[in-house]
Amino acid sequence: SIKEIEKEEIIKVLKEVNFNKKLASEILGIPLRTLYKRLKEYGI
């Protein structure tokens, strides 16, 4: 599903940037606030 793909992509990017959420949100092209929402939604 799209949610699974998105979750995997978020985890992959977070690992690449050593869990720097600000940098991860910039790489993913989403606002930091949205990233936090996704992390909560996906239980990351």
Rank of each mutant, 00 (worst) to 15 (best):
residue 1 S to Q: 13
residue 2 I to W: 11
residue 2 I to Q: 14
residue 2 I to F: 07
residue 3 K to P: 11
residue 3 K to N: 14
residue 3 K to R: 12
residue 4 E to R: 06
residue 5 I to W: 14
residue 5 I to V: 12
residue 6 E to K: 09
residue 7 K to H: 06
residue 8 E to K: 11
residue 8 E to L: 14
residue 9 E to Q: 15
residue 9 E to P: 02
residue 10 I to L: 13
residue 10 I to K: 00
residue 10 I to V: 08
residue 11 I to K: 07
residue 11 I to A: 06
residue 12 K to W: 07
residue 13 V to G: 02
residue 13 V to P: 00
residue 13 V to S: 03
residue 13 V to K: 03
residue 13 V to T: 09
residue 14 L to H: 01
residue 14 L to R: 00
residue 15 K to A: 10
residue 15 K to N: 12
residue 15 K to L: 13
residue 15 K to R: 14
residue 16 E to K: 12
residue 16 E to R: 12
residue 16 E to L: 15
residue 17 V to N: 09
residue 17 V to P: 00
residue 17 V to M: 06
residue 17 V to H: 07
residue 18 N to C: 06
residue 19 F to K: 03
residue 19 F to M: 08
residue 20 N to K: 04
residue 20 N to Q: 05
residue 21 K to G: 08
residue 21 K to L: 13
residue 21 K to I: 14
residue 21 K to C: 04
residue 21 K to T: 13
residue 22 K to M: 10
residue 23 L to H: 08
residue 25 S to N: 01
residue 25 S to Q: 02
residue 26 E to C: 04
residue 26 E to G: 08
residue 27 I to T: 06
residue 27 I to E: 04
residue 27 I to C: 02
residue 27 I to H: 06
residue 27 I to M: 11
residue 28 L to Q: 01
residue 28 L to Y: 01
residue 28 L to R: 00
residue 29 G to W: 02
residue 29 G to D: 06
residue 30 I to P: 00
residue 30 I to M: 12
residue 30 I to Q: 01
residue 31 P to Q: 06
residue 31 P to L: 04
residue 32 L to T: 04
residue 32 L to A: 03
residue 33 R to E: 15
residue 33 R to N: 13
residue 33 R to L: 14
residue 33 R to A: 15
residue 33 R to P: 09
residue 34 T to P: 02
residue 34 T to N: 07
residue 35 L to G: 00
residue 35 L to T: 00
residue 35 L to R: 00
residue 35 L to M: 04
residue 37 K to R: 12
residue 37 K to T: 08
residue 37 K to S: 09
residue 37 K to Q: 15
residue 38 R to C: 04
residue 38 R to T: 10
residue 38 R to W: 15
residue 39 L to Q: 02
residue 39 L to F: 04
residue 40 K to S: 09
residue 40 K to P: 02
residue 40 K to I: 13
residue 41 E to T: 05
residue 41 E to I: 07
residue 41 E to C: 03
residue 42 Y to L: 15
residue 43 G to D: 09
residue 43 G to L: 07
residue 44 I to P: 04
residue 44 I to S: 05
residue 44 I to H: 06
